[in-house]
Structure formats: structure tokens, C-alpha cells
Design a protein around this nucleic acid. Structure first.
Lengths: 148, 148
DNA sequence: CATCACGAAACAATAAAAGTTTCATGAGTT
DNA sequence: AACTCATGAAACTTTTATTGTTTCGTGATG
């Protein structure tokens, strides 16, 4: 099953953005993430709608942080990315009136809800400034050495 | 992101199988799950390898439970299905030597590990016989009413 | 007014999962 | 022995979600 690394990637980008004087263009961010500008815009749009970043058109434009890293939590970004569920596990719906299917789904659902609650609680405890340590002079647009 | 309902489906099937006198064919199970026999064999093969079910070829053949429902946990079946991870959330790997990426991935990973541990612990607590209640005379091959 | 950069929409490519087809093998039935 | 049923295995096709691409429009800077 495919993984969604957008949370990790966006956190990474946001923290680097905090180090910059000028806005970061979609092109620049795309290069950093080994992807393309349109995907960056699509993803960043969600963060902008929640007020965590701003976008400016034209010369010198691009993306900037709208709030301090200390005011953004992992949960904020997770929610802004609009992932439907954190689990790959789903329920069945072939026989919604079958008592066995109901019992099975209820048991699984109980566990998923509890585990997700824990996960979101932990995400809420971590603000981005706690992750922005020891970066010193690591450049935003440095290329990966593990790439092609 | 796509959901994997195999756990729910297989639990449902196993509990029904416990009610049957004869082995259930892949064809019969496939009909129940609105899928096809080959997918059933692929999935059941994992359970057979772990010893939870047996398969018999030829006349009167099919799939049977190999152990009591009370000796199978949700965790057993979850593991037998061989899901790599229960989360849709993944880590980034564009800049594995970047301190920020490392810190971000570590923070996310810590949370995922804790949440997954809780989830697996809960799955281990539930044996299938606990879910096999109130099924009375609900037939294995009853068709869904929510289908197309 | 030329350039830069986002916004939006339509379209193409990719990859994972599920579905399909075919043939082989083994187990009962007659 | 021949027939039928059902799994086992392999190759292939289909489906679907995501990602990537292209194009055009708009606004902002110089």
C-alpha cells in the first residue's frame, strides 16, 4: 500500500522556510523535494487555506510562513493536508446487516479509534520549533545524494 | 488513499467457517465477499501458511479452520495478512543527511511506533470467539443488499 | 510592458491492487 | 480408468488513486 510522505515533506519545507529571508518559489521547493511545482502548489494550497503560509505572485513572490513555528503543531499540518484516515486498515461493507460483520467491524473500529486518538494527541504535543535544531548551514536547495 | 479491508473480510469469513460442517470453497467465499476465487486463494494462502486454516483439493474440498476461534486473535490474522504498516503516513527520504529531515522523521516515527504498539496490543487482546455472537441463522452466502 | 510566479483546469503517466485467464495437480465419484 | 471438482501457480489485463505535465490566465514587480 502506498505511503503518503506529504506530512514529513511539508514539515521539512516549513522549517527550512523559517530560515529564509525571501519567499520560496514552488519551483525551488519542488527541486528540494524531487517533485514538480504543480504538486507543491496543490499541497501548499491546503496550508495556505488554514493560514499557516501565504503565497505571493510575481517577481520576488513565492511561499512564506504566516505564523511562528512555535505556533504550529504536527497535528495542524496533518489536518491541513486533509488525510482522510491515518490507517491503511479499512472495514468491510458487503453484509452490513450481518451480525458477524457488525461485530468484527466494531472490534476493529474500536481499536482504530483508540490508536488514532493517541496519535493525534501526540501530534498535538509537538510544535515545529522543537524540530528546528542543529540545522546550521544546511542549504534549502541542496540535492539528495540518494537520488538517481 | 486506498483502504485494505482484508482484515475485516477475513475475520468475517473465518467466523462463518466455524459454523459450517463442510469446507468452504474459494468460489463460495468469493461470492460472499463480492470478489473472485483467485483473490480468495491469494489471501487465504497467507492464513494457511501460518496454520490457521487448511485447504483441501478436489471433491468436497475447500477451506476449513485449523484451530479454534478462541485460539486466534485479531493480531494473528493481521500478521498473517502481511501488511507492511498500518499507517498511510510515511517518511521522506530526499535528504537523509539533513538534520531537519532527520528530526522531522524521528518525531513522526516516534508517534507512529507508539500508536502502532497500542493498536497491536489491542488486537492481541481480542480472540475471534468473542466476535462470534448473535449470528444465529445468518447464511454464509447471503447477498448484500447494498451492492449494485 | 516584459518577466516572474502563483492559480486553475485538463490531460497523461505511473504504480499498486484487484481481477482474469489458463493450465497443472490432486482428490473424490462413478 | 475416466470424470468432475477444487486448489496451486503463473502470466496477463483492468482498475483506480496519485503524481506529473501542459497550457493558459492573472497579478505583481521592475
Amino acid at each position: 500500500m502506498r505511503k503518503d510522505s506529504r506530512l514529513s515533506r511539508m514539515l521539512h519545507v516549513l522549517i527550512h522556510m523559517d530560515q529564509l529571508d525571501a519567499p520560496a518559489t514552488s519551483e525551488k521547493i519542488a527541486t528540494m523535494l524531487n517533485t514538480n511545482p504543480v504538486v507543491v502548489r496543490r499541497t501548499m494550497a491546503g496550508l495556505r487555506d488554514k493560514g499557516y503560509v501565504t503565497s505571493v505572485k510575481g517577481h520576488g513572490g513565492g511561499w512564506s510562513l504566516a505564523v511562528a513555528l512555535s505556533d504550529i503543531t504536527l497535528l495542524d499540518i496533518h489536518n491541513a493536508l486533509g488525510e482522510s484516515s491515518v490507517f491503511t486498515i479499512g472495514l468491510s461493507d458487503e453484509h452490513t446487516s450481518c451480525p458477524i460483520e457488525i461485530a468484527v467491524n466494531q472490534a476493529i473500529s474500536d481499536v482504530l479509534i483508540e490508536a488514532e486518538a493517541l496519535l493525534l494527541e501526540r501530534f498535538r504535543d509537538v510544535t515545529l520549533d522543537k524540530l528546528a535544531v542543529g540545522f546550521a548551514d544546511y542549504p534549502l536547495n541542496q540535492q539528495t545524494s540518494s537520488g538517481e
